[in-house]
Computed example of a mutant assay.
Amino acid sequence: MSECLRARIRAGDPEAFAELYEEYARTVYNYAYRLTGDWSTAEEVMGDTFLDAWRGREQLDPDRGSLKPWLLGIATNKARNANRGTGRRLAFLARRPAVEPVADFAEETAGRIDDARRLAAVRRVFGRLRRTEREVLALCVWSGLGYPEAAQALGVPVGTVRSRLSRARARLRRLTDQQLADERAENATAHTEPQRRRGEQSDETAFAALPIQQITEASR
């Protein structure tokens, strides 16, 4: 992104801002999707991000460099607002594939992962990370920001970004390993339990007949 374009955006040039949108709209959307876990919310976050960017264009530093950290910093705050009070942050990722291939994410955050089951486990446990951990992973891993740019986006020191990213990677590995261990235990139990006779019903028949959504809500 040239300094000339930055200056044009600061001056309120609609064509320059359109170029900015074309350059970073998908980046902002992908980032918002990973923080909210919902495509419609991500679209709202993306729209609000560029609206705020246009409104705050005069505050741009003319010599700051890339506009990507600036936009993702706005998106971070918008995603936080969208998630506040829902209690279901990123639960959507446990039920749907990621927008982009997960291999790149898994390689950076959980080491070299080749097993498809492990990749699925990473997606399922990602929503259990702390908000700050998800944000730093989304910025540094998915969005490709360096430590200084991520620090700018989050409004924190570079050292904080480094420590958060290290903790997030370590915690994600632990959660993924535990998820896989639990799944292996469940599979082992399923294979060793005797099959029921034809027509035999369990004591949980009534509960099993409930819609999946009711079961999910009842178990919370």
Score class of each variant (00 low, 15 high):
F50T: 03
R26L: 08
M46T: 13
T216P: 06
I9G: 01
R173M: 12
P69M: 00
V45S: 09
D38W: 07
S219P: 06
F207N: 10
R197M: 14
W70F: 08
V161G: 00
D61T: 02
P69E: 00
A106N: 00
T49D: 06
V158Y: 05
P148D: 07
Q195R: 15
E204T: 12
L35N: 00
R57N: 00
P97C: 06
R128S: 10
A153V: 03
A94L: 04
T189Q: 14
Y29R: 09
Q152M: 06
G159P: 09
S202I: 08
Q59W: 07
E3M: 04
R171G: 09
R196D: 09
L35H: 02
A170E: 13
G12I: 03
M1L: 05
L93C: 03
D115N: 09
A150Q: 00
R164C: 05
L72M: 09
L137P: 02
N77S: 15
R95S: 14
L129I: 08
Y33C: 08
R123N: 04
E43V: 09
G111R: 04
G155I: 02
E19L: 06
E100T: 15
T109S: 11
G146T: 07
D182E: 14
A170L: 13
R57L: 01
R220D: 09
L71N: 01
T216I: 14
L165T: 10
T109C: 08
D38N: 15
Q201I: 12
H191I: 15
E19V: 06
Q195M: 14
W39M: 13
V28T: 08
A153M: 04
D104F: 08
E149W: 01
E200D: 10
G56Q: 15
F105D: 04
S163K: 14
D52K: 12
T160P: 07
L90C: 13
V161F: 05
E44M: 12
D13A: 02
Q179H: 12
L180Q: 06
E15W: 11
R184T: 13
L67H: 01
D115G: 07
E58C: 07
D38Y: 10
L119S: 04
A106S: 01
E19G: 04
L172N: 02
A32H: 05
